[in-house]
Design a protein around this nucleic acid. Sequence first.
DNA 1: CCCCTTTAATTAACATGTGAAGTATTTTTC
DNA 2: GAAAAATACTTCACATGTTAATTAAAGGGG
Lengths: 144, 144
Amino acid sequence: MPSDLPLTSRSLPIALLRARESVMGPIRTMLADVDITEQQWRVLRVLQEEGPQDPTRIAHRACLLLPSLTRILQKLGEKGLIDRQPDPDDRRKQIIRITDDGLKIIRNNLTASIQAAERIRAHLGPERYEALLDLLNELNDMDN
Amino acid sequence: MPSDLPLTSRSLPIALLRARESVMGPIRTMLADVDITEQQWRVLRVLQEEGPQDPTRIAHRACLLLPSLTRILQKLGEKGLIDRQPDPDDRRKQIIRITDDGLKIIRNNLTASIQAAERIRAHLGPERYEALLDLLNELNDMDN
DNA sequence: CCCCTTTAATTAACATGTGAAGTATTTTTC
DNA sequence: GAAAAATACTTCACATGTTAATTAAAGGGG
């Protein structure tokens, strides 16, 4: 049954929204089992991959705004997954570090996370997957 | 200065996040002037394009979860931009309709909204723009 | 050294995202 | 035709998104 309705699948903002939902859905489910949100996971991964760093850099690497990150770091601190120390050189800053418990969570879920990414790459095919990333990155360059 | 860090621009979830931010940023700014959020705008557009309908359909068309939509409809009702009536055939349902004031907001911003979309299309070029939409839609089909 | 600006992080206030539970109504099934 | 299952919201609780205001500490002239 054909329709004259404008297809929301041809609206770029909505298509981006849905695509992200499809990609993140399985990962969110996996993380829910260990009571970690998608954003908390991103913060832990940044700390594990790049080492201890200040909140401003974390926010930039994990694509979070500082007010959100402040709350997330509080939660992660309560869970004992991160550690905070004052920066000796600049007392406005802190140095955030992932704890052993935090690393444990990374180790227990990283494999499944990588497999989820590989599944998507396989579904599209490597070339189209890379092409998609290129197109998305080009949208970002528009502002800057 | 080269770096061994994994580029977040090659992470699909983060690339999708940033791309959506680039696309929506200008539109959000435009809507902030009339005190309307991005989500409220989507609801109004759905009602204007497709006519009166029940919340479940609105949620589907505007890509919102029902709990979010409940709150959004309350706000839009308070602003006098929509109207709600009980469905005579099924008392569980309601019929939501956009008001004249709601239509006024659409008219005052639709042109700028369309121009923003055209700007992106022009930046990528029509073929690559369509290719991007195709790739994004393919990600959705993975679940179903 | 003091005033001014900038920067880092937090807090506040409001809106949405998200999963789970609750309520009312309709449909199904035996 | 009543109990059971499904549907259409709504409400709750918690987490994040987003903008603006706030606090504390550095830096930069004069």
